[in-house]
Simulated scan of single mutants.
Amino acid sequence: MSRRDNPLGRGTLRVSELAFGAAGIGNLFTPVSDAQAERAVLAAWESGVRYFDTAPHYGLGLSERRLGAALRGLPRDEYVLSTKVGRLLRPRTEAAGDDLAHGFAVPATHERVWDFSADGVRGSLEASLERLGLDRVDIVYLHDPDDHTEQALTQAYPALEALRAEGVVGAIGVGMNQAGLLARFVRETDVDAVLLAGRYSLLDQRGLDDLLPLAAGRGVGVVVGGVFNSGLLADPRPGATFDYVTAPDGVLARALALKTVCEDHGVPLRAAALRFPFGHRAVTSVLVGARSAAEAQDAAAMLRTHVPAALWGELKERGLLPADVPTPEGTD
């Protein structure tokens, strides 16, 4: 199938509009077999996805191992791979049950140790390359430095900048589920990209307050994750999750109203949720997690779905989107 590739920030790297988020194949919340994980990755590839994202955090390295194994037979120069630094994985000396306290259905064979030092960055990346079975990654993100801001700015970021200068990585960035601190990194550093999770969606446009205009002005690419807000916009119903907790009644009601308007225009809510971020010129790619071939195929099909300009207009008229929010008028 044809696909769209967009430049990531100021550099030469280009990424597919749809990116594969590999937390799910790291057994996020529920186990996935090796075979299911491989089928999910290959289905994404066959659907045109050429950007894959993972992290040591996801399943205590399981996501990286599975993603690397699934990509191993594919042409390395035809896809972009990102991983993250900030959490080192250290073996536990004693068995400690499972890792579900951190969201992953895997044995707790390792513990996560926060480390945004220069040595921590290099050690983390070296371990990631070993798990992936690759000699390079294309993008490295500082992962959730919320409580480690100063160390991330003064130690981890310069280490990544040096690795970029050495050609070890092609691009560097920061990934978080808040926009404010990402904006600080965009202002104070020379990152190529930011990964913004959950803060630029049909239900939450806080990324528009400062980060997105700033990124556009500085030529920083924005990858948007969490467009379904952890599930609510994929299937709004009582008990659905919003930002990893049960959706409050008011938020659920708004999601159901969004769904009704979309259905009136013959568009699945998932399709509108995936297309919405591209209304802003800073947005380069949308990252969607998939744990099965069916989920990967569905995401690609939804992004290909035509979303008429009239739908965005009605959402604004009904107050379900701010009147001044940029929308991808008439795109498909």
Rank of each mutant, 00 (worst) to 15 (best):
A240H: 05
T284R: 12
T93C: 04
K259F: 00
R184N: 03
R66C: 08
E38H: 13
E317Y: 01
L125W: 04
E94D: 11
P158A: 12
D115V: 08
E46Y: 00
M302P: 13
K259L: 07
T241G: 02
A108H: 05
V106Y: 06
G173Y: 03
Y244E: 01
D147L: 07
V49P: 15
P158V: 06
V121E: 00
D77E: 14
D77R: 15
A234K: 07
G207H: 02
E130Y: 00
E150Y: 01
R218M: 08
I172A: 08
M176Y: 03
T331G: 13
E295Y: 01
P158H: 13
Q155C: 07
A179Q: 10
G330M: 02
L211Q: 08
V288D: 00
A301V: 01
G266P: 09
R66K: 07
L74N: 06
G279A: 04
V137N: 05
A273S: 15
L202G: 13
T331R: 02
G217L: 01
D135F: 00
Q151T: 12
G231P: 08
F104W: 02
R237E: 13
G250I: 02
P326D: 11
D147C: 03
A273K: 09
A247H: 04
W312R: 05
T154W: 01
R270F: 01
V267P: 06
R90H: 14
S82N: 06
L214C: 14
A197F: 05
V222D: 06
P238R: 00
M302W: 02
S128W: 00
D210G: 04
V85D: 10
F52M: 15
R184Q: 10
P158G: 11
D99N: 15
S230D: 04
G59F: 11
F276C: 14
L212K: 04
G170T: 11
L18F: 03
F228I: 07
M1W: 01
P277I: 03
L100A: 12
K84C: 09
A96R: 08
G24P: 13
P91S: 09
L100H: 07
V15F: 01
R87M: 08
G21E: 02
A273G: 14
T54S: 13
V194A: 10
A296Q: 06
Y244K: 07
K84F: 11
S230T: 13
E161Q: 14
L274S: 13
D98F: 00
I25N: 10
L13Q: 08
G9W: 00
G24M: 02
D209Q: 11
Y244I: 09
A69P: 12
D190L: 13
P75F: 03
D119H: 12
F52K: 10
R164F: 01
R131K: 08
F276M: 06
W114H: 14
Y200K: 07
H102G: 15
A240D: 05
T149E: 12
G319V: 07
D138P: 14
R87T: 09
G175D: 06
D332W: 11
D209F: 06
T12C: 03
G217A: 13
E314D: 15
L258D: 06
G198K: 10
G180C: 04
A19D: 11
H110Y: 15
G250K: 12
Y244A: 07
L182E: 11
G217T: 01
